[in-house]
C-alpha cells in the first residue's frame, strides 16, 4: 500500500493507503474523499477527477499530455499542475504524494 494525501477543497487533509496498480482516482473514490466525482470510472473521458499535484511531486507524476491535457484545458480552473488523477497509477515511488482537490469539477 502507498500513502497518498488528498487535500479537500475546504483544506481537510485525508491520508489514505492505496493499493499499487490502482489509480490515484480510485484511492480517492474508495475512501470517500470529497470532490472527486470520476463519472467515467477512469476512462479519461469525463474530466471529473481533476486535481492539482503538489509541485514537488510533478517530476514523479509527470504532466498531463494528449487527451488528458486537452480536457484539462476546459476543466474548472486548470493550472499547470493540473492532472486527471485517473491517469496516475499508484506506484511505490509515490509514497506520500500530496494532491489538492478543486472546489468544483467540470
Amino acid at each position: 500500500m502507498v500513502k497518498i494525501i488528498y487535500v479537500e477543497a475546504d483544506g481537510t487533509e485525508r491520508a489514505v493507503d492505496v493499493a499499487e496498480g490502482h489509480s490515484v482516482m480510485e484511492g480517492a473514490v474508495s475512501n470517500g474523499v470529497h470532490g472527486i466525482v470520476a463519472e467515467c470510472g477512469g476512462a479519461c473521458s469525463c474530466a471529473t477527477c481533476h486535481a492539482y499535484i503538489d509541485v514537488s511531486w510533478l517530476e514523479k507524476t509527470g504532466l498531463a499530455e494528449g487527451d488528458e491535457a486537452d480536457m484539462l484545458e476546459f476543466a474548472h480552473e486548470p493550472k499547470p499542475t493540473s492532472r486527471l488523477i485517473c491517469q496516475i497509477e499508484v506506484t511505490s515511488d509515490l509514497e506520500g504524494l500530496r494532491i489538492e482537490i478543486p472546489d468544483e469539477q467540470a
Binding site: 474530466a47 487527451d67 486537452d70 480536457m71 484545458e73 476546459f74 476543466a75 467540470a106
Partner: peptide, 12 residues
C-alpha cells in the same frame, strides 16, 4: 472523435 477539446467545449 478523438477530440476531447470539442467535447468539453460542447458540454460547457
Amino acid at each position: 472523435i478523438n477530440d476531447a477539446r470539442s467535447f468539453m467545449m460542447a458540454k460547457r
